[in-house]
Design a protein around this nucleic acid. Structure first.
Lengths: 333, 333
DNA sequence: CTGAAAGCGCTTACAG
DNA sequence: CTGAAAGCGCTTACAG
């Protein structure tokens, strides 16, 4: 492999001069710079990332921790991954993606060995066991998903409470007062998927305030059972005039279920959900919905993390909520 | 940060002894080893990955290159990513995931800077521009997807020709002689998605041999248009008794389309497709299908790559086809 | 504007 | 069974 020493020799300068030419950290005369550039392109030189990392204590790599819950609908995850990866690259960082079953162990491994400059956690739960490991790391961390205790970490999430209020207000404004809510599966609540109850509780509270009724049910997220569960819920609540679906797998299955039931939206039933534009596009979902912004969340997490890496004390930890926006696709009346 | 020197000092030995104790590359007396272990756990020492990489020229990281084609159905991709990531971890490797738009540039960047010991390419096309960059790298590469020229690279793919023959044989054996094939979109053929024509051409050839008819159509892969395109194809071919769908987006949409048309499978139409067990599970697909084995392909690619890293000349490049297997789900008659 | 030297934290022949 | 030293390929004060 060709090193900075080879370049220095070819250009007739010292290694430090080549290094400074590379980094731009001190002025270099025009002719010296030209000789160095010529040598670099002639020899096809690239800085060795490991050596640079050792010398600078910066790897220019971010850790990205994923965990796959059985109770989650896989297609939604990819959008977060891409958003994080793209945002990182734009800021000059690469992504070390870890899908380890043992999240805390994986965090300790990549942080204590200094493989990364910072860590992004996806799919954070209420009492996420990875947070402790992340707090003990010397690298900063950014979360997508709101845990119980946000201390010492930058956190980004959709404001699910506000999303619920937005949706309930929308339906109430249209005159609905008997509404069915399909939540994530019971198991998501039990394992601490806080987005599930943040949404549900806010919706119920808002409904109580208006004196209207919301019937909350657990939906399914795994086949077989999604369609069956939706049908069972709809069978139970024939008097409801509106349906809120906060469940990726269920909303993806809803068009088929409603078609089969002969239910026409919004004539027979108003439908509102939460999903990203891309998700809706993939599954051809025609419903009015709150945009979940995986792209915005992923980007924000990365941007703050990089800022925090550059400037460890740039301020107290941030808890950033994305303001929900309702995209009206005409599925309510 | 605590270094190997701190451990050596605490244990009262030299740094080299600590290093050998860590690697096991030479015998250490029991009591020395115990003192070292005690010091390590007391100080919470972890080897610095960058420094080790610099000294050994091994990063223990594999590059994983993804590219997102507009004409692809996103949900299928995640399975490959997970398979590669899990297989790598089992062999002691981490994954540097690169989603750069500029594939060849990304390969040059991560290989020439020695960030990775090897590279896995997903979603390889017939004339994939990334291959040239990969061949010029000093690290070995493994591909998922068969390109025109496999020289110097380990390649793994489903045997799409054999899959086509398997499916045609199956349908021919059941007495079908008028069959519709929904292929990937035209655009996939044009940009060199070889799996598309490998499957189609083999199916047509086999049909010709049996003297039966296969009508090949391009399907869509993006909304809106998937359902419409399926309906248009089915409207054109009302005399066909069997449908082969080689198109992820179309097969995911098929149940809804057939329900709407009132077509009962297999009474009115036999259906065969290609998809993975997980994909079928996510979309509740009840069709007899060739298993596409993203897990098996991902694992194989990683295993061979790691083998090749350890032993650069362990043999000539491998082109490994996964034998297709038909999972009978009763959707043909 | 440039160079010589120390140092980042490891590994591994070389010696004993 | 163990240690002293060189080396991996960089960066960056220190000096001039």
């Amino acid at each position: 492999m060709t090193t900075i020493g080879d370049v220095a020799k070819a250009a007739g300068v010292s290694r430090s001069t080549v290094s400074y030419a590379l980094s731009g950290n001190r002025p270099i005369s025009r002719e010296t710079r030209e000789r160095i550039d010529a040598a670099i392109s002639e020899l096809g030189f690239t800085v060795n990332a490991g050596a640079r990392a050792l010398a600078t204590s910066q790897t220019m790599v971010l850790g990205l921790l994923l965990q796959f819950h059985e109770d989650e609908f896989p297609p939604a995850m990819l959008q977060y991954i891409l958003a994080v990866s793209d945002a990182a690259r734009e800021l000059g960082y690469d992504i070390l993606m870890v899908t380890d079953g043992d999240g805390p162990g994986a965090i300790r491994r990549i942080t204590s060995s200094n493989m990364v400059d910072g860590v992004v956690l996806l799919d954070v739960t209420h009492d996420d066991p990875r947070l402790e490991a992340l707090r003990q790391a010397r690298q900063p961390g950014a979360l997508v998903g709101l845990p119980r205790d946000t201390e010492g970490l930058d956190v980004f999430d959709l404001d699910f409470g506000e999303a619920a209020r937005l949706i309930v207000d929308h339906l109430y404004g249209l005159g609905h007062h008997d509404i069915v809510l399909v939540s994530p599966p019971r198991h998501v609540f039990e394992r601490g998927g806080a987005y599930a109850w943040r949404f549900r509780d806010a919706a119920l509270e808002r409904a109580a305030r208006y004196g209207i009724r919301i019937h909350a049910h657990y939906g399914e997220s795994q086949q077989p059972g999604i369609e069956r569960s939706l049908n069972a819920i709809l069978d139970t609540r024939t008097d409801a005039t509106a349906l809120i679906v906060h469940n990726d797998a269920s909303i993806a299955a809803l068009p088929g279920v409603l078609r089969e039931r002969g239910t026409v939206v919004p004539r027979d039933l108003s439908v509102v959900s939460l999903y990203s534009r891309d998700f809706g596009r993939t599954f051809l979902l025609p419903y009015t919905a709150v945009e979940t912004s995986p792209d915005g969340l992923g980007r924000k997490a990365v941007q703050h993390l990089v800022r925090r890496i550059a400037e460890p004390a740039y301020g107290p930890p941030v808890v950033g909520f994305i303001e929900p926006e309702l995209t009206d696709r005409g599925s309510t009346a």
